[in-house]
Design a protein around this nucleic acid. Structure first.
Ligand code: SF4
Ligand code: SF4
Lengths: 137, 137
DNA sequence: TAAATATACTACCTGAAAGTAGCATTTAGG
DNA sequence: CCTAAATGCTACTTTCAGGTAGTATATTTA
């Protein structure tokens, strides 16, 4: 019961960028600050840029930068881009199609938690997370 | 953000057994009722039996049976046996060692949900789940 | 005791996520 | 124009959860 490793990486990187607004940071620099494999991070950042979550500049002095409106970037957008949101609509027991109408014994217990986590993802922006340190305390 | 597939299988099987107390069900029968790969389920049930969560009989008319005291089998015991509980003590951003004392921006938001899910696992028994149907509603 | 029906054990196969490597492409700036 | 420094692209490798196969072992029952 956890995020994919890649989602963790994406959140770490995005929060780090959000804490350095106006700065354009290279993959190398992010790699060194966040301890994420260099090449793997490169592809990940590329995806996040393609999704419009960060801006990117090529060439010398290039790199990634958070958009100005980081109060409108929500965590769910990061999770959606990286691992999708399908798990949050899914049966906890893995049955392929099932409704809320005749729920099994676990359904209500699980759905409550699932909806809470969804709410966290849908209501938290990067701006909300700027108050405190990102790297190891 | 979900349980491992094997954990889903284990919960499905255990809840199904809990709904058939006093019956000794073979792997073949569980496989047909729950749509879990036969051989894979065999190994899984073997593990659950070894962990003492179900009783087992070999040979003809053998199979698995839930213990009488199914009101003292908690979901966390199943999760613990199958995928471990390490994820519930883990940093959401994947940092190796970190304390609650100087938390990062996400920490409090995440820990609250994590503790709620842990509480569900630690407070729900198989007996609690017997009220409603297990298979597809 | 022999056949039938079950679990237990061991080894191997598969697919997807994670990680690695090399080269192409873009841009700043002397 | 040329070089340095950056991202982008493509392909390969590794790791592990999930799944398959065959055989050994245990138990009931005729
Ligand atoms: S009712 Fe039960 S089987 Fe159906 S989706 Fe909910 S948890 Fe899954
Ligand atoms: S404070 Fe942040 S970095 Fe530390 S364990 Fe909590 S979520 Fe992870």
């Amino acid at each position: 019961m956890r995020f994919q490793k890649t989602t963790e990486y994406a959140i770490r990187a995005m929060v780090y960028l959000a804490k350095h607004p106006g700065q354009r940071l290279s993959t190398r620099s992010l790699h060194e600050s966040l301890d994420i494999p260099y090449k793997y991070l490169g592809r990940l950042m590329s995806r996040l840029a393609e999704a419009g979550l960060v801006s990117v500049e090529h060439g010398k002095h290039g790199g990634y930068q958070i958009s100005e409106n980081r109060d409108s970037i929500y965590l769910y957008q990061i999770a959606e881009e990286v691992e999708g949101l399908e798990d949050y609509e899914r049966c906890i027991l893995g049955f392929p199609d099932c409704s809320d109408e005749h729920p099994c014994a676990l359904h209500d217990r699980w759905v409550a938690h699932r909806e809470n986590i969804k709410a966290m993802l849908y209501e938290t922006t990067l701006a909300d997370l700027e108050e405190e340190p990102t790297k190891q305390p």
